[in-house]
Amino acid sequence: MDRQPATEARPAPSLRAEGISAGYGAVPVIRDISIAVGPSEIVAIIGPNGAGKSTLLKSLVGILRVTSGRVMLGEDEVTNRPPEELARRGVGYVPQVNDIFEPLSVLENLEMGGYLLPSNRIRPGVERVTQIFPALAALLKRRADKLSGGERKMLAIGRVLMLDPKVMILDEPTANLSPKLADSLLREHVTRLAAAGKAVLLVEQRARAAMQVAQWICVLVSGSTRLEGRPNDLLRRQDFEELFLGAGTRNPVNDKQEEADEDT
């Protein structure tokens, strides 16, 4: 692992993983990973397909068993606590797929996002979320599986916002979105979450876009942290692309699709 010296202090972590390993069978998919995210900070995990990015997030939120290391939420250890407990303690998780309750209406999805709230705080919660995502306000009665890709992701994030979590964990929120929508989601909404004081940890395939919004980048390759640091420091490194290219599968920094879209 290769660390960059920090030029200015990062916030005290809201959520941090200390040397965690996790996987599906006997062989761990991620090994000895440490990562932290603090209030008002956006930390992006980038890396090639199959690097273990989603696995890392799932092990942080209690869906996947951590086999070694520990997960800390503030001062409390929450390693392998069940997902419902992490939700109660202020960790919001938006999976990459299966991120909404498809047969339920938009309103019901939000109500379920606010399941832990007392009943008199559900309606204010829905109002707050529809202020953040005005597009959802007109769709409350619609079945969630009838939404467009962008609306769906707004609902997925809105569902999590119902509990007003301290930590937001987003697994590739821009996957399946048009480049334009992806860009606005990252620049407007994700940035706004951090501005509101939330600790935002996200996995992002579009490395360039991630580097524009994140304050800290963690490059994951083959289940280990290859590199981490501030985006500018990383980009300045001679060997950055090489480290990425060494990963093999594709080169997310020079994603052709993304380049083409940014030119227009």
Binding site: A87, P95, N98, Y115, L116, R159
Partner: peptide, 8 residues
């Protein structure tokens, strides 16, 4: 899984 992550 999502239900559990929502605190249900």
């Amino acid at each position: 899984t999502l239900a559990r992550s929502s605190g249900i």
